[in-house]
Design a protein around this nucleic acid. Structure first.
Lengths: 118, 118
DNA sequence: TGCAATGCCTTGAACTTCGAGGTATGATGA
DNA sequence: TCATCATACCTCGAAGTTCAAGGCATTGCA
């Protein structure tokens, strides 16, 4: 029950969702994804490299993304992009996420006792 | 990467949030909580007893809820209710959840490529 | 030369959920 | 009477994640 240092424990499966979404928009490499998530969420969500790389490898193993090596200014980068299977997977995850948040929202706001809304 | 049978892998920390919310509305016992979550979310979320009981014990150990034993029609029930500390904890979790979902929503909908919204 | 940033990766610990099982009582029905 | 189901508590091992830290190598800057 120890408090997490960074993200408050609601992160299960979320990195995979965000990574697929980013890659659907444009080809990216691991290190870039780490920073993109941090910046686009205004640091609300911060996933480390230790999370991103295993997820990328898992997605590639499942055929949801594919990679190609590219050398830019002497630096070797591995760019990932979504496959049709990955796109389908993103759609599924996205729908699951929407359903889940809707259900939770209903429980959080829908009180059975009257709520003062002035 | 195997697909979950019931809930789609976004469940980290969610049971604790829902349980605290339910208990804030009214005193409840474990078995009742299991069914309340299932019914109030229209079975979108289904947490088993193996999840609920450990969470309740952890919350009690941390002083977020307190329990009292009550016997109803020969059946012994342990009713839980939130303490002030638990109420504070619920507020924190609730805020974290709101921030997280807002950030993700922004990433899911905010595309950098134009989206057809007719 | 030294140091920071870039870019890839792995590891072990810690946590959580999941699913199945165990115990015991009351109500139902054949 | 006896079997079965719903109630009500609980525990356990397996599986999957995230987290933090570190290792390796290159480039750019002071």
């Amino acid at each position: 029950m120890a408090a997490r240092e960074t993200n408050p424990n609601f992160m299960n499966g979320v990195p995979e969702l965000l990574i697929l979404r980013l890659l659907q928009q444009s080809e990216m490499y691991g290190y870039e994804i780490v920073q993109a998530i941090r910046s686009r969420t205004d640091a609300v969500i911060a996933v480390g490299e230790g999370v991103v790389y295993p997820v990328l490898h898992g997605l590639e193993r499942d055929g949801a993304v594919k990679s190609r090596r590219k050398t830019v200014k002497g630096r070797s980068r591995i760019y990932y992009s979504v496959t049709p299977a990955g796109s389908h997977r993103l759609a599924d995850l996205s729908e699951s996420w929407t359903n889940l948040t809707a259900a939770i929202q209903k429980m959080l706001t829908g009180g059975q006792r009257d709520q003062a809304i002035p």
